[in-house]
Simulated assay, not measured.
Amino acid sequence: MKKIIVAATLLTACVAFANPYAKCVSCHGANGEKAALGKSKIIKDMTKAEFVSALKGYQDGSYGGAMKGLMKGQVTGLSDADIQAMADQIAK
């Protein structure tokens, strides 16, 4: 049983690294359809340019309201390629 749990944990981690949006799903929804914690914009309605600008703004501290601190921690490790991949997957 312990081996199954370890394997499942490793598989989940691999999927999260392969898809940078995976860690966002719990708050923003599988398709970006939720207002995270009832406060954020619905990201599926954002243009790709707005989405990229928002995430880069969270990274450098120039964007965001109440969730600015929380989001900075979520996006700090994302590369430009990760951000663009997420925009292509979720935004218009």
Rank of each mutant, 00 (worst) to 15 (best):
G64V: 03
C24S: 10
I90R: 02
M67C: 10
A22L: 08
A7M: 12
K34C: 00
A30R: 03
I83Q: 00
S79D: 15
C27E: 04
K72W: 01
L55A: 09
G77A: 15
K39D: 01
C27G: 03
F51L: 10
A87M: 03
Y63P: 14
K44E: 13
I4Q: 09
S62Q: 04
Y63R: 13
L55F: 04
G32A: 01
D45Q: 10
K2S: 11
A54N: 09
L10Y: 08
F17N: 15
G77W: 08
K23F: 04
A22E: 07
I90F: 08
K3P: 12
K39C: 07
I4Y: 10
K34M: 00
C14I: 06
A30I: 05
A22H: 10
G69Y: 08
T47F: 02
S40F: 07
E33W: 02
V52W: 03
C27R: 00
G77Q: 11
S40I: 08
M1G: 11
L11E: 05
K34V: 03
A81S: 15
K44A: 11
N31L: 05
T47M: 02
G77K: 01
V25Q: 04
V6S: 12
C14Y: 01
D82E: 14
A30K: 15
G32F: 00
Y58S: 00
I42R: 01
L37C: 08
G57H: 05
S79V: 12
A85F: 00
A8K: 04
S53W: 06
L11H: 03
E33Q: 12
G38V: 09
K48E: 09
K41F: 14
K72Q: 15
I5H: 08
M46T: 00
P20W: 04
E50P: 08
I5L: 11
A18H: 01
L78H: 14
K39A: 10
T9I: 12
M71V: 09
A8P: 13
Q74K: 12
P20A: 00
K56N: 11
L70P: 14
L78M: 12
Y63M: 11
L37A: 06
C24L: 03
Q74M: 13
S62T: 14
I90D: 02
G69K: 07
A36P: 13
S40P: 14
Q89P: 06
C27T: 01
V75S: 06
L70R: 02
K92L: 10
G64W: 05
I42M: 06
S40M: 11
M1P: 09
A49N: 10
L78K: 00
I43C: 09
D82W: 15
K56A: 13
D60A: 10
I90E: 04
A18C: 11
Q59E: 05
V15Y: 05
G65A: 11
Q84I: 01
G77V: 09
S53P: 14
Y21W: 12
A30T: 09
K48G: 13
A18L: 12
A7E: 15
G69R: 00
F51K: 01
T9M: 10
F17P: 09
I5M: 13
G57C: 02
V75K: 06
H28L: 08
Q74R: 07
S53L: 10
D82S: 03
I5N: 02
E33D: 04
V15R: 00
C14F: 12
N31I: 00
H28C: 06
T76V: 02
P20G: 06
I4L: 05
K39I: 09
C24I: 01
L10H: 07
